[in-house]
């Protein structure tokens, strides 16, 4: 047996799950390294939730091999569930319960829970501890669900769409919590269809479609290629494109699609931007409305599936 240090948190090989005629998970392979944040990305119906539920031991797969923290969830579900934390996409709280009451109850199911008051305070739930669940706002419900997922001090946390419906401030707070979890050695698996969330938080991204992982790697690996990177700026019409082209790295292309509007493709980064503005300064051009657009996970997804992500 390997030590806990190098054992992946989740190892799935050839998972299959059918609901009647429909195949929700179709030969899925996924490895989640320990102490990392892995984003499971995909449109609705891609198999994200089913895969996560199988990892939690909530659902049994029809075929394949699954190990979570070294355990088979279908066999050792109870043992596993004391070591993981789960945030459901919605609900999960007694409709008549108060926010603080529910969090306190979850804490009472674990051996070494976090301090409930401090956790509530950190997630901005301090003021609504006595508010019944059904009167909480959407954002407050999300934060409560997040608190319920981490209160038991788990080794592995599953977050299903953790920031859906949160305002920007609450979203930042949730992201901050995920970063803290990672810094403290907790493995995080989050499902999302927000590209910026995956790019912002994840060490690794697994893109799901049709019940399979169609691509995985670090965000940088997935975005490599740079085919979608573009820098645009406006200036006086008729600039010397050949001269500008000569100043840029070899793989760059320069064009003037409409008079006075310039488009540069290539490895768009800080160096390219500096080169362009330096060239402009030399030629007495005030570069206006400079925009850069880098190849994103969104582009990767579009290229892989031919579809938008939501």
């Amino acid at each position: 047996m390997r030590s806990a240090g190098d054992q992946p948190a989740v190892e799935a090989v050839g998972l299959v799950k059918r609901y009647g005629e429909r195949i929700a998970v179709d030969g899925l392979d996924l490895t989640v390294p320990a102490h990392s944040v892995t984003a499971v990305l995909g449109p609705n119906g891609a198999g994200k939730t089913t895969t996560i539920e199988a990892c939690e031991g909530y659902r049994r797969v029809d075929a394949g091999r699954l190990r979570v923290l070294g355990l088979d969830p279908a066999v050792d579900g109870e043992k596993l569930r004391s070591r993981i934390g789960v945030m459901l996409q919605e609900g999960g709280v007694y409709p008549g319960a108060r926010a603080g009451e529910m969090l306190r109850h979850m804490a009472s199911l674990y051996a070494h829970p976090l301090d409930v008051d401090a956790l509530g305070e950190r997630l901005g739930l301090g003021s609504c501890g006595r508010t019944p669940y059904r009167r909480l706002s959407g954002g407050q419900r999300q934060r409560l669900a997040l608190a319920m997922a981490v209160v038991g001090r788990p080794e592995l946390v599953f977050l299903d769409e953790p920031t859906a419906g949160l305002d920007p401030q609450a979203r930042q707070a949730a992201w901050e919590l995920v970063r803290e979890l990672r810094a403290d050695g907790v493995t995080v698996v989050l499902s999302t269809h927000l590209m910026d969330e995956a790019e912002e938080l994840a060490d690794r991204v697994a893109i799901l479609d049709g019940g399979r992982v169609i691509a995985d790697g670090t965000p940088a690996e997935l975005c490599r290629g740079g085919a979608g990177d573009v820098l645009r700026f406006a200036g006086r019409p008729g600039l010397d494109l050949a001269s500008l082209r000569a100043a840029l790295p070899a793989d760059s292309e320069v064009s003037e699609p409409t008079p006075g509007s310039y488009r540069i493709t290539g490895d768009v980064g800080p160096r390219l931007l500096a080169t362009v503005t330096a060239w402009c300064a030399q030629h007495g051009v005030l570069a206006d409305r400079i925009t850069t657009r880098r190849h994103t996970l969104e582009d990767v997804f579009l290229e892989l599936t031919g579809r938008e992500l939501r």
Binding site: E78, R81, S82, R83, I84, S108, L109, Y110, A111, H112, L114, V150, G152, R153, P154, E155, E176, R179, E180, L181, A183, D184, G185, V186
Partner: peptide, 13 residues
């Protein structure tokens, strides 16, 4: 940011 806050200590009551 308080590192160590969430350091795992799993287990059922």
């Amino acid at each position: 940011t308080t590192t160590g806050h969430h350091s795992p200590a799993p287990g059922a009551a």
